[in-house]
Design a binder for these strands. Structure first.
Lengths: 182, 182
DNA sequence: TAGGCCATGTAACCGGTTACATGATTAG
DNA sequence: CTAATCATGTAACCGGTTACATGGCCTA
């Protein structure tokens, strides 16, 4: 899922400015499984417009800077569907937490406990965000995906809560720094 | 988790050649949450050696090409622990499947059903791989992480199996191509 | 009046992938 | 004889991030 396809996907359902697209990818319903920043949004929007997949108009709300609101064209919708119909790549998970957990023996119980605590806090925050998006949203596909997200986050939280002591016990083992420096 | 830290993490537990490191990141116990290819492994190994974090020796097994086996140095271990002690970044999930699911209304029931089927197959394969790594492995951190992986995969499979009909029902709705091209 | 949010955009950089080049050995 | 696996490495490219530049409005 590159910027190209993601932006098309968003604009397929609503028109938006670059700023709003970025917000959606960070705080919005897409944030669970995508990520994108200004540095790729604005150039991509310009390219999509040059290719005829989106068009822009300027909008001005009183007391706010001028916005460039992009909307998808018929060609863009076709392109979106084309992108959708390609066999999806397998999910890619990048987790530093799991790396840290794997090497728990090199952390102190305190640092591991902090890492777990922070992770639980993060997951609960994310859960709340998804739940917030879910009610008030009537789009079925979005609700299905949000349901998936909630389910997975709950599973993660459950594992963390029932196994945090086990992980801290690993951390409490030998003196790893000494071991590492031997 | 960049190549630098990942390679250090692997070499912290065992010596390995670039080829083996790549295998581990694709088929091995690390594959669940990292990914890396030759094009970044070999240059990174060279850099790590120049920096004194790893050393290499050449090994030759009869009937096989010569290998360059890398092992971590005390400085490398310190560097590994340093990397570990930095606050872990939040997980990043990239999922094209979820994007496709979200836009299920633009797919046919058949294509959605195929996507779900392929995903289930993939998850089951991954599950088997993790389970395979888990027994026969006595390293506690690895087992904890593998347990996490199994737990999450099971959660994903459960959601998919109980909600696949719902998703296909979305796909079976309107005539999306006509809608898209209108 | 300082900081935060709105809003757009660029340039430098970076981490990584893809594809290629090379070559030996083994199994079918 | 062919394909697969083992094994190392490079070069071109790419997608993306980070940091910067700019500026107006609103709130504390």
């Amino acid at each position: 899922m590159n910027a190209h396809a993601l932006i098309l996907a968003i604009l397929n359902y609503q028109e938006a400015s670059g700023y709003e697209i970025r917000k959606m990818s960070v705080e919005g319903p897409y944030s669970y499984f995508v990520d994108i920043s200004y540095g790729s949004i604005y150039p991509t929007l310009a390219r999509l417009e040059a290719e005829g997949f989106v068009v822009s108009r300027t909008a001005q709300d009183p007391g706010k800077p001028e916005r460039k609101v992009y909307s998808i064209t018929p060609a863009g919708r076709l392109e979106f569907i084309r992108a959708l119909s390609q066999p999806p790549q397998n999910d890619k998970l990048k987790s530093e937490f799991l790396m840290v957990a794997m090497a728990a023996e090199y952390g102190s119980p305190a640092s591991i406990s902090r890492a777990i605590g922070e992770r639980i806090a993060f997951l609960e925050e994310e859960r709340a965000m998804i739940a917030r998006h879910m009610d008030g949203c009537s789009h079925e596909g979005t609700r299905w995906v949000a349901g998936y997200g909630l389910h997975m986050i709950d599973a993660g939280l459950a594992y963390l809560k029932t196994n945090c002591e086990a992980l801290m016990a690993i951390a409490g083992g030998a003196n790893p720094v000494g071991k590492a420096a031997e």
